[in-house]
Simulated assay, not measured.
Amino acid sequence: MVELVIEQRRRDLGGNFEVGRVLPFAKRRMVGPFIFFDHFGPVDLAPGVDRKVDVRPHPHIGLSTVTYLFSGHIMHRDSLGYEQSIRPEEVNWMTAGRGITHSERFEHARAQGDRIHGIQAWVALPEENEEMAPMFSHHGESDIPQWREGGVSGHLIAGTAYGLTAGARTLSPLFYAHLDLDAGASAEIPADHSERAVYIATGALEVDGDRYDAGRMLVLDRGTSRITAAEASTVMVLGGEPLGERFLYWNFVSSSKERLGQAAADWKAGRMKLPDADDEECIPLPDQPAPPAPPMS
């Protein structure tokens, strides 16, 4: 059965570039370790698009960002010195640990025009890994197992599912996959984890006789195991084991509210290094002011 339906809420990140925010949600902050889930696009960006659409340098702690594209190109730069373009059906996996900063820019679109469509999820780190050294990895076809069966094409982005294991390093039990379903095709949802969900990026699904349209996340109970495409659909399936209480503030995740306050103070004071290509930009950035420290009550 479907336990909860979460509809995306539109958010403007600047320059009229909108995302559909799904997690966190008031009635369900996390699914397994997944604490944040944004669906961006599809949106057509014309050559010469204004730099206001870029995601300017910003910090993270206590989480991994997982960026996956259906179409388009995004340029990632971070304070470890990595500069990596991400393309469709690839994964940028950045683990913030004790602290990292990065930017995401639409340089290909600015030069040639582009159609941007993808998902960014955040995976909270286990408490023992929250202060680990930051790291970055990029994963292409060789690290993302693919299969096709019964009208379903699958890409395993992370974890173990469908008898396969993806190449990205994960720090807690989870699975994350992209499925394209032909109209009428059905797919099993892995049942190995206590928390699971399906997000409908395009198309529509039927689950237990009910229809659900695009832009919705279906949080599943332990009994639900099969989805059917009411029309050709693209979905993300995800899940894992809960990590315990996590606090989310601005771009920071932690099991400690005090740690969130320290991270905000570090960013505001300029103690967090910027990506090299962005060092000429000021801290705090005019369009991303540092937040005040979060309330400790």
Rank of each mutant, 00 (worst) to 15 (best):
H39C: 04
R77G: 02
H39N: 10
Y82T: 13
H39Y: 12
F37N: 02
M75P: 00
V66D: 00
V31C: 12
L63C: 09
P24H: 12
R21I: 05
M75Q: 04
P57F: 09
G81L: 11
A46C: 07
H58S: 10
P59Y: 09
V53Q: 12
R87Q: 10
V53E: 09
D50I: 09
P88C: 13
G41N: 04
P33F: 02
P42S: 11
I35H: 05
R77A: 12
G81H: 01
S71T: 14
F25D: 15
R21E: 14
D54L: 10
I86F: 01
F36R: 01
T65S: 14
I86L: 08
I35V: 15
G41Q: 03
P57W: 07
V22K: 01
F37C: 05
W93C: 09
T65K: 04
R56D: 03
S79K: 01
M30Q: 08
K27V: 12
R51H: 08
D54I: 08
T65N: 03
G32M: 02
P47I: 07
W93G: 01
E90I: 07
F37K: 01
G72R: 00
P59S: 09
E90G: 13
L69A: 06
V22L: 14
P42H: 06
I61L: 06
S85H: 07
F34E: 02
P57Y: 04
A46M: 15
H60M: 08
N92K: 02
H60W: 07
G72A: 10
P33C: 05
P59M: 09
G72Y: 00
Y68G: 00
S71Q: 06
W93V: 10
P47G: 04
P59L: 12
D44I: 04
V53P: 08
E90M: 13
P24V: 13
P42Y: 11
I35E: 02
G48W: 04
R87F: 13
